[in-house]
Design a protein around this nucleic acid. Structure first.
Length: 483
RNA sequence: GGCGCCGUCGCCAAGUGGCUAAGGCCGAGGUCUGCAAAACCUCUAUCGGCGGUUCGAAUCCGCCCGGCGCCUCCA
């Protein structure tokens, strides 16, 4: 079975057949850099990171473009509020974006263009649209003329007449039809501007992505992604502009991820119910957030709450604890080296199960179910091998395969001991644990146990239990963790 | 008002015409352990309601109830 994916344009799952065999051109709408990213942005980044990783796993040569919108009303507003230059705003938040993406282990796209570096391409498209009679200049603005693009609405499933009925023109706009949208905006005094045949101004948001996509990926490419909220009007308008210019639908497959909700309402700036990525990462490991987001299908909504992150954390802990234990048993063995490069990871039966799940429109939830099952099998195998001191070769390969599969989904990139230490460190801080007291109690318990004073030993543990601390007696001594 | 989505075990979540309805968390019992923990084993749902189509439906259709999104900037 080969990859099938849900195409917003057709409303169906379709077989994925790239325009050029073996190659994939993919454009994903990035962020407007006027503030820190929230968990909703993280979801989009992680969803398309997963798509990117998986396409590469399948052997495609992927050209992945993700842009920055670095000129926009909100950026200008922000700059005015903070009384700094608009480039200071974009520079600051682009840096913050890279920090967040780095933390989340989002693979870098091939190109990350900024809109302001592609003004010329935008001007060329706008001019072309005017020449073809599909756009018009009006008082220094340029608008796309909806009625000259009969297919308008095909992505979002709307028809022009219905939309016309409900549309209104904002005061100050110079449109012929209410649905016409700005390709170029005349700039007000003091605002950033670029010269154009229609006077100084700046590009409309939609033309940015059209121009950058076309520049890097051509007039027609395979995949265009973004959040569901971009379907209309942003992506609808991209189609109108690009197809208006070239005569060709610009994108073969449109992919859209669902929202992150808080108490079943969309997380958004305007509702004020958002958490920034950096807020969350103060309390949870980045891979916890990723695992949580991947435990749901990418197109559906996700409700966000600490409880769910806690669940994901427990799952992730199990994986790392397994690999920490396996590493102990296997000494200096590097699991990565247990896979025969000549044989190819894709021939592994377990990987084929993962592929079966992922081929079905990136069903990461099912893939995770397989990972959990495999983890259980390997825990069992590890215990059995230890008892019998059997042949570990099969185990090593299976563990290496499991690790590969986890990393395919973007987690298990850390040394198990480092991960576990980092999680513990975070909890010490967030819970304000008194480590000295904990360790003193553990020492007392150790002394009591050596004296075979079980009653006293249990008192120590009970005291720790009340503090939320769980003890584990291992061959190397007693370790503790937070429940 | 227009378009669309969702309602599956206490919680999260796959499954969208037919094997015993995945998986995780929580809970119960067990193996192991001085006792625990971890790990492992076992157990826990007939799919919002009603009606229909079908040999057969959580899965298709209709109606109802409940929740949400887009239609303005938004991942």
């Amino acid at each position: 079975m080969s990859l099938r994916l849900y195409n917003t344009l057709t409303g169906q799952k379709e077989d994925f057949t790239p325009l050029n065999p073996g190659k994939v051109g993919m454009y994903v709408c990035g962020v407007t850099v006027y503030d820190y990213c929230h968990v909703g942005h993280a979801r989009a980044a992680i969803v398309f990171d997963t798509v990117y990783r998986y396409l590469q796993h399948l052997g495609y040569d992927v050209n992945y473009v993700r842009n920055f919108t670095d000129i926009d009303d909100k950026i200008i507003k922000r700059a005015n509020e903070e009384n700094i230059g608009w480039q200071d705003v974009t520079k600051k938040y682009i840096e913050a974006f890279y920090e967040d993406m780095g933390q989340l282990n989002i693979a870098a796209p091939n190109v990350e263009p900024k809109a302001t570096d592609h003004i010329e391409g935008m001007l060329a498209m706008v001019s072309s649209l005017i020449d073809q009679g599909k756009a018009y200049e009006s008082g220094g603005d340029v608008y796309f003329s909806i009625k000259n693009f009969p297919e308008y609405g095909k992505l979002s499933g709307r028809n022009i007449d219905d939309m016309m009925a409900g549309a209104r023109v904002e005061p100050g706009e110079r449109k012929r039809d209410p649905l016409d949208f700005a390709l170029w905006k005349k700039s007000k005094p003091g605002e950033p501007s670029w010269d154009s045949p229609w006077g100084p101004g700046r590009p409309g948001w939609h033309i940015e992505c059209s121009a950058m996509g076309r520049h890097f990926l051509g007039e027609r490419f395979d995949i265009h992604g973004g959040g569901k909220d971009l379907v209309f009007p942003h992506h609808e308008n991209e189609i109108a502009q690009s197809q208006g210019c070239s005569g060709t639908p610009p994108v073969k497959y449109w992919l859209h991820n669902g929202f992150v909700n808080i108490n079943e309402e969309k997380m958004s700036k305007s509702l004020g119910n958002f958490f920034t990525i950096r807020d969350i990462l103060k309390r949870y490991h980045p891979e916890v957030l990723r695992l949580f987001l991947l435990s749901h299908h990418y197109r559906g909504p996700i409700d966000f709450a600490d409880q769910y992150l806690n669940d994901a954390e427990k799952t992730l802990d199990r994986f790392y604890e397994f690999f920490a234990a396996a590493q102990d048993k296997r000494g200096d063995l590097k699991f990565d080296e247990c896979l025969d490069p000549n044989e190819g990871i894709r021939s592994q039966p377990f990987i084929q199960k993962i592929e079966e799940a992922m081929n079905d429109d990136f069903n990461t939830a099912v893939a995770l179910a397989h990972l959990n099952e495999e983890l259980r099998h390997l825990n069992k195998a590890m215990t059995a091998l230890q008892k019998k001191n059997g042949d570990w070769a099969g185990f090593d390969t299976a563990a290496a395969t499991l690790k590969y599969a986890c990393q395919l989904l973007g987690f298990l990139y850390h040394e198990p001991k480092n991960y576990l230490a980092r999680v513990l460190e975070t909890k010490k801080e967030t819970l304000g644990l008194d480590v000295e007291q904990i360790e003193a109690l553990i020492a007392q318990r150790k002394a009591a146990r050596e004296a075979r004073d079980w009653a006293r030993a249990d008192e120590c543990r009970d005291a720790l239990t009340d503090m939320g601390i769980v003890l584990e007696d291992t061959a190397e001594g007693t370790v503790w963790k937070v429940k």
